[in-house]
Amino acid sequence: MMGRIQKTEQAIYIVDDDPAVRDALGVVFELEGYAVTGYESGDAFLEAAKTHPPACVFLDVHMPGRSGLDILKALNADHYPAPIFIISGQGDIPMAVTAIKYGAFDFIEKPFDAELIVNRVREALDAQARRAAGEHKGDVVTHDFPGRELLTPREIEVLGQITAGASNKEAGRHLGISPRTIEVHRARIMEKLGARNAADLVRIVLTGEHG
């Protein structure tokens, strides 16, 4: 237990209009040694998020006022330094997928398992640290290819994993996101680059030829 507590407390922002869910999620992460701040609305969160980026964000997709998607847009989530987890209900998968396109890091479904989300956050932060330390360099596609400018930084990372031959599961583990989210990225990348299948994708990236 002791070893888990961070030396400098990492900040987690939780944005959910339901006070009980917000508090309960906060309790879980506080017990893990994170510094948690809850926000009832997107506006209050945005202000804080812009001036003091936390280590990680939980964002409810269904909220009165600004929806989770609006917030992702306002935050320019594609380039936001902290991973943003979308909290979604069971029926909201299409919405969650859209959120990934808007730059959310990953999504978790309600009701969730405390153990699971704590691990997800830890993996995400570890991956973030590896990224900062430059450990991904070897995998990241560095050279230019047609359509590169269309991809987000995260998509370029995922593409690096795919072209290195990683499965969705392996890529997910490496980047700290769920295999399903890798799938979303993969589909999005193929769509953007006009690739018909994985082999096509590899050829475009490695040879610069268009499918």
Binding site: V21, A24, G89, Q90, K110, A114
Partner: peptide, 16 residues
């Protein structure tokens, strides 16, 4: 689902 999500999180935190 909302309160239940909270209940489960509280219980899981407590249990850990």
């Amino acid at each position: 689902n909302q309160p239940l999500t909270a209940v489960m999180l509280y219980l899981q935190a407590l249990s850990r």
